[in-house]
Structure formats: structure tokens, C-alpha cells
Simulated scan of single mutants.
Amino acid sequence: MYNKLIAYCLSHKGAIQDYPFGPDPLVMKVGGKMFALISVPADQAAVRISLKCDPVIAANLREQHECVQPGYHLNKKHWNTVIADGSLPMDDLKAMIEHSYNLVLGSLTKAVRESVLLRIGE
């Protein structure tokens, strides 16, 4: 699951991986801003992925899915942490990654956003 999540995140335009906090978590960024944090806590079997989310949608996802929790060590209004234990279909998880990526991409300045999108064609 860990490698699938990394590959899917990196399939987005301009997405890069970084380790700004040490060896864990792996941070996915676009335009220098985080859109996903992926980790496998030593005391846990399941991968955890934290994703930016619209606050209303974030609250709804938490109500609908036990594996979706407020963002761990993040702004709990705007971030969810998903325990990727198989209870949430991969398509739903991909949609959440896409939503996070699009929120962050949309928050970039026009110049940075265009720079990210132009680099893709190289």
C-alpha cells in the first residue's frame, strides 16, 4: 500500500517527495507546499496518509469512515489522516489525494502554479 500511495501522489503534475521532518513521514509537495504526508508508524501495521481537505468535506468523511480521523499533528480543521487498512476502497483514497492536490495547487500563486504546470511538458 505504501508504494502504491507514493506512486499515485507522484503521478500528479509537479509532485515531488521530500523529508523535511526527518526520515518519517514522507512528504509530498507541489509548488513547495505539502499535499500529503505518508508514514508507517512503528507501532502500527497500517500505512497512514494525511491529506488536506475542505473543512466541510473533512467532517463528512470522518463521520462516514472510521479510518478517517482528524489530521495527526496538523490543523484538524483542514487535514485528515487516513488509516489505510483496506476498509476504504483505493478509488476513494485516490479521490481524497486528488482533492488534496487540487486544493494545494489552487492555493499557489498564479506564477508558481503556471511554473509547476509548465515544467510538466519538459
Rank of each mutant, 00 (worst) to 15 (best):
W79G: 02
V68F: 07
P70Y: 03
L74C: 07
E66N: 02
A111R: 15
S50M: 06
Q64L: 15
N80R: 12
D85F: 12
C53D: 06
G71C: 03
S107Y: 12
L88F: 09
N60V: 13
L105C: 09
T81L: 06
E63D: 04
Y101G: 07
I97V: 11
N80W: 00
K94S: 14
L105H: 04
L108T: 04
L103V: 00
V68P: 01
W79E: 00
N102S: 09
T81W: 11
D54P: 00
K76V: 06
T81H: 05
D54M: 02
E66H: 06
W79I: 02
Q44C: 15
S50E: 03
R62V: 06
H65N: 08
L108M: 00
H78T: 03
L93N: 14
P55F: 05
L74I: 08
D91I: 11
H99I: 10
L88T: 15
N102L: 12
I83F: 01
W79Y: 07
V104K: 06
V56Q: 13
D43N: 10
R62Y: 01
P55R: 07
A84I: 02
A59F: 00
K77I: 09
S100G: 05
I49W: 10
A58D: 14
K77V: 10
L105E: 00
M96E: 03
I83V: 12
A84T: 11
L105M: 14
I97Y: 01
A84P: 14
K94R: 10
A45T: 14
